[in-house]
Computed example of a mutant assay.
Amino acid sequence: MNIAFSPCPNDTFVFHALVHGLVPDAPPFEVTYADIDITNRLAAERSPDLDVLKISYAALPWVLDDYALLPCGGALGRGCGPLVLTGSGQVGGPEGAAALSGRRVAVPSERSTAYLLFRLWAAQHVPGGVGEIVVLPFHEIMPAVRDGKIDAGLVIHEARFTYHLYGLTLLADLGSWWEADTGLPIPLGAIIARRSLDLAALSGWIRASVEYAWAHPDASLDYVMRHAQEMSPDVAQAHIALYVNGFSADLGEEGYAAVRSLLGRAMEEGLVPAFDLSKLK
């Protein structure tokens, strides 16, 4: 069976047991490591070589006819949302978010959950809207803001722990905004699988992999750090602690409610194609 997920610590931690043959009764899994903007595209293209993928929740409306959302293995949570960053003294100040009006903003993907949240947030807080949206790999965004090549950047992952090293200023925490606005956790990354597969068995194997990771937290350390893209061990562990939580084992009613709220709002705003919300579960 073929699976695609990112090399980020939360994904390698979650899937370590599954891809190393440590989950009883699970078949062998071949891994494609790719950033989420690539897996979003592969899912939209219905790549015949992949059975299971980690994608953005924002990308779900384009693929739900062929893929089902699995209830485990993904990333939801509190206090873990994307950040809007600016260079020190460049944008923001007394004007706050309104200072983004007409500005150039870098985002990691046009179908990322981060960008969808940004668009919902900007509709409330940036009069007239932002100016140009520039898509950059997420690891290039903070240097571009620091160097004044763009006015603001939308960042994800471990940037939450490292942006101060670039001398950047936090303009908005979109996770905090979402939680205050809805009372719900923020949906970030979803695990999807072809509807033709045994979805109950797949969910069981992935849940067992999550539980193995928690029961044996040191077992995956070498694997996680091998793929951590020069991240320090402390940052990698903080990354895992933030993004791997109870929702990784089971979305539950609260998790599904968060996904329905995000994508329902996005449909109302015309930001994603209309679809039947009942397909989420």
Rank of each mutant, 00 (worst) to 15 (best):
I156F: 11
W205N: 09
V14R: 13
G129Y: 00
A123T: 06
D49M: 03
W205F: 13
V235A: 14
M1N: 12
A106D: 00
L83G: 06
E110A: 09
P94G: 15
F118E: 03
R226S: 15
E45H: 12
P137S: 05
M225L: 15
V84Y: 12
I141A: 06
R41V: 12
P187N: 05
N245E: 10
R41G: 07
L69V: 11
G246F: 06
P82Q: 06
R41K: 13
P48W: 02
G77C: 11
K149T: 03
Y33L: 13
D222E: 15
A99D: 04
E230L: 13
G96H: 12
A249F: 08
A193G: 02
A44V: 07
L64W: 02
A44D: 04
M1E: 03
F247C: 00
Y243R: 10
L188I: 15
I133F: 05
P9K: 07
G73C: 04
Y33P: 09
S176M: 14
L60V: 04
V84H: 07
S56P: 03
V130T: 09
W178Q: 03
G246T: 07
V259L: 10
I240A: 13
P24L: 01
P187G: 09
A152S: 08
A201H: 02
A201Y: 04
A122R: 06
Y163V: 12
A159P: 09
L60T: 01
T86Q: 10
G93Y: 03
V105F: 00
E269K: 10
